[in-house]
């Protein structure tokens, strides 16, 4: 089943999401990228109802881009997160709400701090040091309670992320096979191999 994690560290946020696109019990695709780059310093991992995820992620992506074109600078992570949350909060009280859960990881270039926001389909938003969505969250969150260090280097952060993935693979019956991992820091966004 769909799982995504994100952890903050010293000057970076790591966002990871599994790469399977499934329908019912069938795997339709095993190399789906479920992390969008919204701006030079902002990542968004999305999961939930298949059609809604793509539609909503692209809607957000284009609107964040539009803001950047109009104003010549990108939204800061907190501002982008507030806008995205509001979109979901308005959607939940509409006739056909988006069923999309998000992890927003960004690096604020004004204050030089990493930020991570946990957002669900209801429009619940909170800033967290680490977060997860899906069945994997039940295993990963308790592991991160023990091993997360906000001052950890990128290597240590990736090692912690690896432990999360291994724990989920070991204990979760419906564990996903592969993950895509992206990092955002002062240099921008990049993909890393675990």
């Amino acid at each position: 089943m769909e799982t995504s994690f994100a952890i903050t560290g010293k000057g970076y946020v790591i966002v990871a999401a599994d790469t399977t696109a499934s329908r019912s019990i069938v795997k339709m695709k095993v190399d789906e990228d479920k992390i969008k780059t919204l701006s030079p310093h902002l990542l968004m991992a999305y999961s939930g109802e298949p059609g809604d995820t793509m539609q909503f992620a692209e809607y957000v992506e284009r609107n964040i881009r539009l803001y950047q074109i109009r104003n010549l600078y990108a939204l800061r992570p907190s501002a982008a997160a507030s806008w995205i949350r509001r979109s979901l909060a308005e959607s939940i009280r509409s006739r056909k709400p988006y069923a999309v859960n998000l992890l927003l990881g960004g690096y604020d270039t004004a204050t030089h701090t990493p930020h991570l926001y946990w957002v669900d389909y209801l429009g619940t938003m909170t800033e967290v040091p680490f977060g997860a969505h899906g069945y994997g969250s039940y295993f990963a969150l308790s592991l991160l309670d023990r091993y997360h260090d906000p001052e950890a280097s990128l290597e240590e952060g990736l090692a912690t992320l690896k432990r999360c993935i291994e724990e989920v693979s070991k204990r979760l019956v419906v564990a996903p096979g592969n993950y895509k991992v992206k990092v955002v820091d002062k240099n921008g966004v990049r993909e890393v191999e675990l």
């Binding site: 949350r85 509001r86 979901l88 909060a89 939940i92 209801l122 429009g123 619940t124 938003m125 909170t126």
Partner: peptide, 11 residues
Amino acid sequence: GLATDVTTLRE
């Protein structure tokens, strides 16, 4: 109460 409404009502 419901956390999404906490933020919405606050705003």
